[in-house]
Structures are given as structure tokens and as C-alpha cells.
């Protein structure tokens, strides 16, 4: 029994380690399927203009979903994503209105968002409060505070720097905004963190088996704190991207961003039980939602179908996750 030596790494790097390299096979197939259908039903769908529109529409929820992915990978959940992002837009917008330097205003707003994440992280990691409750509380507090600050009203944010990420440039016949690039860049950076560094490895271990992580000496609490703070930072940057898309600070905006981002994460194949999944899936998940909405409109179909199909996909994804876990 002990005579056979383990197979060499090279020999085993066959077909299946390659499937491991593309963790989001299912979501990618789904995305391709929808693209194919919409391309057939309306040729306008594939027009470069329309493709760039879909990308731009994905920016806000897509970027928020990066933070949401990190939190969900720790087996947590973040209901305050939208509220923290709106905090960023309103604080930055208000400060600029008051005549402060736009760059400093945005930096301050982003720091405030990071702080919000940090506080939530501290409550989760130090007091062992359930993330659901902590972020639900954060959501309530921020929503009320923001309505108080802005007296319930939205206001336009007319500033070149704050609106910078909405500026466009051409790549061939594609018109892209800096916001799209910023989103993709954030995806790349956080993907690297998750997949190529110790920090990411430890994050997966914590989500997968926190006790094991603790026993091998990973500072679990500190790590959780870092995750929530980093998520807050990402929501703050999203605030900047959101102002580029809609130059308007509105305390009533992004009310469904928490559920929308969770939807993207779940459709992307990340497990709500933590420790499994990744960012590629999340990006695909966000695109699936965007493609559905855009494609159904182009096809002239009632967009309520979007919610219906999205709902089915969420259930399929979660059921799939549950089944594959049960088998183990």
C-alpha cells in the first residue's frame, strides 16, 4: 500500500486541472447561451455600441459585487453595500458643493466608506456578531443618516474630477468609459489578491473551515477585519464610479444594490456557505444580469421576465452548490 509514489505534478496537470483554472464554467456557459439567443433575435444586440452599454451598466453593481464576493467567501453577507456607496457619493458631492477640493473630497469620502466597512468588520470579528445583523444595522443607520444630511433630496454633482470616470474613449468601434477600465482593473487586482497571495489563500481557508485556519495560526479575526475594510474601500471607489455614470447624489439610490450584488455573486457560483467560488464567476454573474435586462429590452419583452429568469438562475446556482456540497 505504501509502495506507490505520488504522481508527479506535471503528469496530473491534465484535463481536470485545466477545468480548475476556469472555475466558472457553468456561469460562462449561461452567459454565452443568453448572448447567442439575444444575438439571434436582434442583431442590434451585438453592435459594439450596445456591448459597451452593457459593460457600462454593469459598473456599479459589478464593482460592488467585488466587495460582496470577499465578504461572502468568509461565509458572511453584506447588506450595506449600496448604503456605503451612497454615503460616498453624498459626502463627496456635498463637500465639493461646499467648495472643497474635489480630489480631497473624494479621498475623504472613500476613507469614510472604508471606515464604515472597518467598523462593520470590527463588530463582526471582535464581538462575533452575525454579519447579517451587523450589515443590516449599518444599512439602517446610513440610510437614515444620509436622508438627514441631504434632507431627503437628491442633488446634481457637477464636477470634472468627480465625473471623471464617466469620460469616454474609443477602442476601435467600442466606446468605453474610464469607469469600465477602473472596474476591470479592480477585478484584476482583487483576483490577484485572492488567487496568488497568502492573504487570499487564508481568506478561502477561513471561509471554508475557520477552526482549521485558527489552528494553523492564521489570525482569523484580523483577517475578517481586513476583509470588511477592504470591501468598504471598494464600495467607496464604486461611489466615484457611480458619480461618473450618473452625476447625481441621491440618498434614495441603490436601494437594491445589496440584493443585486448578492445575485451576481451567487449566479457566479460562489457559495453562500463561504470558502468556495471566486471573482471570475462574479464578473460573469454581473454580466449575465446586465445582458438579460438589455437583451430583453431589445427584444421588446416585458422586463419583469428579467427578474423571473434571474430568480430561476439564483435558485439553480444555490441548488447546484448545495448538491455538490452534499455529495462530499
Amino acid at each position: 500500500m505504501s509502495s506507490a509514489t505520488p504522481s508527479a505534478p506535471e503528469a496530473s496537470a491534465g484535463l481536470f486541472s485545466r477545468t480548475k483554472a476556469i472555475p466558472a464554467v457553468g456561469p460562462i456557459l449561461v452567459l454565452l447561451a443568453f448572448c447567442l439567443v439575444f444575438a439571434i433575435t436582434n442583431p442590434r444586440f451585438l453592435a459594439p455600441h450596445n456591448q459597451s452599454i452593457i459593460l457600462q451598466q454593469t459598473i456599479v453593481v459589478g464593482t460592488l459585487a467585488i466587495g460582496q464576493t470577499l465578504v461572502i467567501l468568509t461565509a458572511g453577507i453584506d447588506l450595506a453595500v449600496g448604503a456605503i456607496c451612497v454615503l460616498g457619493t453624498i459626502v463627496a458631492g456635498k463637500l465639493v458643493l461646499l467648495g472643497y477640493d474635489p480630489v480631497l473630497s473624494m479621498l475623504f469620502a472613500v476613507s469614510l466608506c472604508t471606515l464604515s466597512g472597518f467598523v462593520a468588520g470590527a463588530l463582526v470579528s471582535r464581538l462575533d456578531l452575525p454579519p447579517f445583523i451587523v450589515t443590516l444595522g449599518t444599512l439602517g443607520i446610513l440610510t437614515a443618516a444620509l436622508r438627514l444630511i441631504s434632507k431627503g433630496g437628491a442633488f446634481p454633482v457637477q464636477d470634472d474630477f468627480l465625473g471623471l470616470t464617466g469620460n469616454t474613449f474609443r477602442v476601435g468601434s467600442f466606446v468605453l468609459t474610464y469607469g469600465v477600465i477602473a472596474m476591470l482593473l479592480l477585478y484584476a487586482i482583487v483576483w490577484y489578491l485572492l488567487n496568488e497571495t497568502r492573504w487570499g489563500r487564508h481568506l478561502y481557508a477561513i471561509g471554508n473551515n475557520p477552526e482549521a485556519a485558527r489552528l494553523v495560526g492564521i489570525p482569523v479575526r484580523l483577517h475578517l477585519l481586513q476583509v470588511y475594510a477592504l470591501a468598504g474601500l471598494i464600495y467607496g471607489i464604486t461611489a466615484w464610479l457611480a458619480l461618473g455614470r450618473i452625476p447625481n447624489a441621491d440618498p434614495n439610490a441603490l436601494q437594491t444594490a445589496n440584493l443585486d450584488s448578492i445575485t451576481a455573486v451567487v449566479i457566479g457560483g460562489t457559495s453562500l456557505f463561504g470558502g468556495r467560488g471566486g471573482l471570475v464567476g462574479t464578473l460573469i454573474g454581473a454580466l449575465i444580469v446586465g445582458v438579460l435586462r438589455n437583451g430583453l429590452t431589445l427584444a421588446g419583452i416585458d422586463p419583469l421576465w428579467q427578474d423571473l429568469v434571474t430568480g430561476i438562475l439564483v435558485i439553480v446556482a444555490v441548488a447546484f452548490d448545495q448538491l455538490s456540497r452534499r455529495r462530499r
Binding site: R201, N208, N209, G275
Partner: peptide, 24 residues
């Protein structure tokens, strides 16, 4: 080094990741 009664491994990670967990 200790092997605990309840397995201290992260099932969703591969063998090398588990072997080097915390000491990558």
C-alpha cells in the same frame, strides 16, 4: 506540530494549499 481530533483541513483547498496552510 499537532494533528487534531477534528480534522484541521480546509476541504475546498487542494493538497499543497492544505499542507502549507499558514506557511505558504
Amino acid at each position: 506540530e499537532t494533528v487534531y481530533q477534528d480534522l484541521a483541513v480546509a476541504p475546498a483547498l487542494d493538497i499543497p494549499s492544505n499542507l502549507f496552510l499558514g506557511r505558504e
